[in-house]
Design a binder for these strands. Sequence first.
DNA 1: CTGAAAGCGCTTACAG
DNA 2: CTGAAAGCGCTTACAG
Lengths: 359, 359
Amino acid sequence: MENNFTRVKISDVAQKAGVSSGTVDRVIHNRGEVAIKTREKVLKIIREMNYEPDILASTLASKKNYRFASLIPEGDEANLFWKSPAEGLEQALNEIKHFGITIDQHFFPYFDRNAFRKELLTIAESKPSGVVIAPVFSEQTKEILPKFNQLGIPVVFLNTQIENQNNIAFVGQEPGRSGMVAAKLLNYGLVQNAEIFIINIISQLGGNSHILNREKGFRDYFALSHNPSHLKLKTININVQEPETLESVLTQNLGGTESGCRNKGIFVTNSKVFHIAQWLEKNNLSFIKLVGYDLLEQNQEYLKKGTIDFLISQQPREQGYKSIMTLFNHLLMKKQINKDQFLPIDIITKENIDFYINH
Amino acid sequence: MENNFTRVKISDVAQKAGVSSGTVDRVIHNRGEVAIKTREKVLKIIREMNYEPDILASTLASKKNYRFASLIPEGDEANLFWKSPAEGLEQALNEIKHFGITIDQHFFPYFDRNAFRKELLTIAESKPSGVVIAPVFSEQTKEILPKFNQLGIPVVFLNTQIENQNNIAFVGQEPGRSGMVAAKLLNYGLVQNAEIFIINIISQLGGNSHILNREKGFRDYFALSHNPSHLKLKTININVQEPETLESVLTQNLGGTESGCRNKGIFVTNSKVFHIAQWLEKNNLSFIKLVGYDLLEQNQEYLKKGTIDFLISQQPREQGYKSIMTLFNHLLMKKQINKDQFLPIDIITKENIDFYINH
DNA sequence: CTGAAAGCGCTTACAG
DNA sequence: CTGAAAGCGCTTACAG
């Protein structure tokens, strides 16, 4: 129980190896200018003595500063989801700022690929120590990412994955899986011969692979193991910018539902689920099972009223937090990091939501 | 975007105040031996210059070591739940050990209140800097906790809360709420006139307030808002030590269930839910809806087979992690900490479980 | 290729 | 009550 443990320090290694601590330091950090024989001897002693550098002393002495940069969508009113990752970035910064870390936070309007591209170029020019980006636009990302690779700047992808880009990590959810979770929740709440609608509420620019993968996961669930003959699945695509379309499409598909029919379900593949909840409520159809994504305030409201049955959360705040910590562990702590950092697919109800908001 | 920011250091404050940095240090740490006038002047300058001490330099210079102690149940085979908090403690230790922190981990057999008491006394005698305990036995806790209070040793409660014990924080779940979540899940999956069983699988020593609170929350859900007339609720208490009781009680209550009747549900108020799952499977009653607690391996297995529909997780690993971090933030970082740190009530299904295990 | 010395920002005896 | 000096473990020029 007693703590008589005394750390082995660089001077112990130096003494035992018959060199100065400067030389040991050069070996540890591969700074060259060491005779190969000396180098090997020192490495041997380090292993033997089980030497581990004191990270505190190290950061204090090397007045090195780390400038991280982040690029994510603006968390404005039309796009509240993106407020949370920014908070997570801040929280991480707070925990590690005494290691000399700063973060330049950059933002772009969610639909503006030119702004995205421009900001990313600006970041590349500023040559930060590490970068976190939400690669919403895959084409622009693929164009500019080589610059970071050439400069040896590690990049972490947040929320969206793009394959083969040499990013050191992806922090986010597995979208197909979250679709399966949604399917499970609807299937569990409905009986045989149910009618289920998949509603994609998308904007003009489209092309969000998230949404496609979520729908795929959802359909896979039924296709793989749950008697697809026993239910009707129908996909509806709606453009957010056209509220009249939303109105007419919903009326057409769900208008005739008899009161008391609890055997219909709706899966909205993104955070726009509150639009559907609103319509259901207006038409006294709140009993239809409804599952969607993300804890936007509007969604929370309908969840608490019971119009939305379940929300799937992506832990957006945690995404921001983990992205920065990944850079920190990679760059400062020299730790091995996981390439895929999948966050839990949290199932949120009226009853447990309190524990998922405000951190 | 540029980082021209230079930190104000203790010598800057000292110079501006016309004193030595030793004096500033005495003021900062309330070590006394400073004239009241000097003290006030220094404090004023500190505020003006917005001085914040460099925690790295501070811990390096003060060769202070912090010895934390923990006391939780053994995570043996009969009690797998408790493996996870220990892992969380370890993980936290890994992240902060370079601040000179060590943890003496103590354990006791889950049902042994004497062992608990003895270990807690041992810890008190060793006078650690801070303590994390799972106060499973409230009487013994209440007896010994004053010793820690007298010594000014901060105590964090993990998993179980006991009121009015001057613990600086509680890290765990709100048990009543988790009962409500279970109720929601069963209610959502069943139709009117359902029959629901609450099964408490307890050991001879009993008295676990968790279980009572969970049942209460479960019943409250139906009592408060969900037409209690439309369902039958029945509580069954079973002693784990008597498998024949389990067998006969279950046969008596559920034996006659017709195949295909999807309108029965069971809520098991703790991690022993796998016993019920096993019985259901043996009797071809897997279609009965089943909800329980904790990701024990046996439970995971039945969840994956679909016999258990939902498991509620207490984030046991996170409980360990957060407890240590709370001591760290309180003692080293001098941060304000939250007295109640409620962890999310995670809803786990076959589809999302992968993201909740192995951290 | 190597070592001696100064310094990172703070804390700790010690002397007065 | 206060200051000057040494030291925490590592890194960084500099001299050779």
